[in-house]
């Protein structure tokens, strides 16, 4: 029988509440969310808590192992790298750099991509179809190639690699938005609004956008994981962030040189990247399942 309820009131959840409740029920997705919140907090307040300056080199303690080995100390919880920089502080700052920049890029790409996609989806005609074709073909070009071209044009550095990755992320948003907008424009509630005299921007912001937000959030999580992987890949190759900037990919490539004698230099930034991407993917998966369950029931 139904649960006991003193006041038998009807509770009709709004779509967001529905999605959130379904999301909460999945333990795995909640773990991912907690990890994500942890990383966000680290990115924001971590630098205030880091014990050392990430670029300060300490020649007394080179390649000290992490604290759980016999020869490690508590002073350097994750050990130090080849020039004596503390790994823990580097990792904390690295989270800030990698994670923070990825989120920034995703937001920029989302704004640009959604606007372009909306325009492309709502207009018809030769101009829009050319735009569509060009953006579709841009999506077919590998990220790394775009990054190489831009770095060749503008030089290396974090800012330039940011341009490259934003350019690579935009087509996905455009594609998704354009398909969605085009499908929604054929539906009858949009027709009803148009017959009421709604203009194009009203249609977009009031009718279509609220339906699109869930799709956007799911797409944003996947774009975030792509951005994280790309930033670290470019840092690793030396095309993006440059040393001594504490970015996780750069730390990986530095750790590669001492991998045989000090494997933690390689393992710890890598595990950090892995956990970040895992958290984002778990949350994205959980959201997608929750949205799907809501749509089908």
């Amino acid at each position: 029988m139904a649960r006991f309820n003193l006041y038998d009131e009807e509770f009709f959840p709004s779509p967001w509440q529905h999605t959130w409740r379904t999301f909460k029920q999945s333990h795995i997705a909640m773990t991912g969310l907690i990890l994500l919140i942890f990383f966000s907090l680290t990115a924001v307040i971590g630098p205030f808590l880091a014990p050392y300056d990430p670029v300060e080199q300490n020649t007394n303690s080179l390649l000290v192992p992490p604290a759980w080995f016999d020869s490690g100390t508590i002073a350097h919880l994750f050990g130090t790298d080849a020039v004596g920089r503390d790994m823990l502080s580097r990792v904390i700052y690295g989270c800030q750099v990698t994670f923070g920049i990825s989120i920034l890029l995703v937001i920029i790409a989302m704004i640009v991509g959604v606007s372009l996609g909306a325009v492309a989806g709502m207009t018809k005609g030769v101009r829009s179809s050319i735009l569509n074709h060009l953006l579709d073909s841009l999506m077919a070009i590998p990220t790394l190639l775009i990054a190489i071209v831009i770095v060749a044009m503008l030089g290396t550095g974090l800012v330039n690699s940011m341009w490259a990755i934003t350019l690579a992320l935009i087509p996905q948003f455009v594609h998704g938005t354009r398909d969605f907008v085009r499908d929604e424009m054929k539906k009858e509630y949009v027709l009803a609004a148009r017959l009421d005299g709604a203009g194009k921007s009203f249609l977009f912001f009031q009718s279509i956008l609220p339906n699109m937000i869930e799709l956007l959030v799911v797409q944003a999580t996947f774009a975030l994981s792509t951005a994280l992987l790309d930033i670290t890949a470019l840092g690793f190759l030396g095309l993006g962030a440059q040393p001594p900037l504490p970015e996780l990919g750069v730390m990986l490539s530095a750790g590669l040189e001492v991998a045989y004698i000090a494997p933690w230099n390689l393992a710890i930034p890598g595990i950090c990247i892995f956990l970040m991407v895992l958290a984002v993917n778990l949350v994205g998966d959980g959201l997608r399942s929750a949205v799907r369950k809501r749509m089908s029931s």
Binding site: S225, L229, L252, L256, L266, G270, I273, F274, L278
Partner: peptide, 14 residues
């Protein structure tokens, strides 16, 4: 989920 969260280059290094 684990597999597609691993960065490819880190996997190669490991």
């Amino acid at each position: 989920v684990f597999s597609y969260s691993i960065p490819a280059f880190w996997l190669a290094l490991i």
